[in-house]
Design a protein around this nucleic acid. Sequence first.
DNA 1: TCCGTGACGCGAT
DNA 2: GATCGCGCCACGG
Length: 327
Amino acid sequence: MFAGIEISSTRGLDCCVIDEDRKVSLLVKARDLDALKPVLGTLPPTAIVAVAAPSGPARDSIEGRFAEHHVRSLGFRIHLTPASVDDAPARTRVGFGLFAALADSGFPLFRGDDATQGAAIEVYCLLSYASISGTRRSTGSKFDWNRSVLRSRVHGLPKDAEQGTLDAACAALTAWHFGQGNWVAYGDPSEGLIVAPRPATDLARPGATSAGQLSLAIETSAPPRAITPPRATTFADRVVAITRQIPAGSVATFGDIARWAGKPAGARAVGTILKAHGYELPCHRVVNANGDPPPFPVETIKRLQSEGVALDGRRVDLTTCRWRGPS
DNA sequence: TCCGTGACGCGAT
DNA sequence: GATCGCGCCACGG
């Protein structure tokens, strides 16, 4: 059995279950998570459950999850999941709750291991549609394109299926591909993987990817379970990138940068990294938590003054000049 | 692989 | 306030 679940913030949850022959055996609309839970209890322990929503918050505090960056590098405008649950939209929070409920029901989140039965996987429908069909929607409505992709691949879908139903079926089909071993995964296993059917063609559009930043090519030849180590940007890379963005007239603390780079406790490491990069970065705009600039007394103070940073003696006034962080 | 070092942060004194 | 101790993390020998 292969289940797919789509979450809509306005229309509730859609669930589609298909069998080994990709025939629809169950279609359910649930108003909320509690209404769906009884359905989860009816699934066999070996079922694969695909959910079209993020499985958890981002681990790093600035820029969504690595899975989403990888999918974006393929040209999809996937939403970035925040690091804080409080910042997540309602639909995303429902998704977190759903994955928790699935784990309770015996379908733990797939994290790239060998256990590929009785598992929950995260999917992204637009990616799945493209991977399955080998094409991207160019003209025409999204709805018509989705339906045409599914028409010959999922049997027994009602003619009047709504978008939510289609996406649930697409998720279920992705679960089916997963069950066949015909899948690839994007992202960081410890943070959350997005699973998709193995693409029929190379998904990356020429020019659509910032290959320098995210050279994350997933291995598309056998064995299918191979997951390319996802963390293409190291902590040091992110520290450098963030420091470069600090505007003149503002400063950031080592701790700020460590948090934005994803390691709140890595302030000390930020100092190590910045020291190694010397003059290529505006290191004078990075101060410690007291506002003391790094040890280049005269030069640093002069540069900060010329940029309009408020100084109390040789100490930066953090209350007025602290950068609010990368956008 | 292990271990010492350091442009850090924070709480305690 | 200053200073200390401890934890933290990347890096290099």
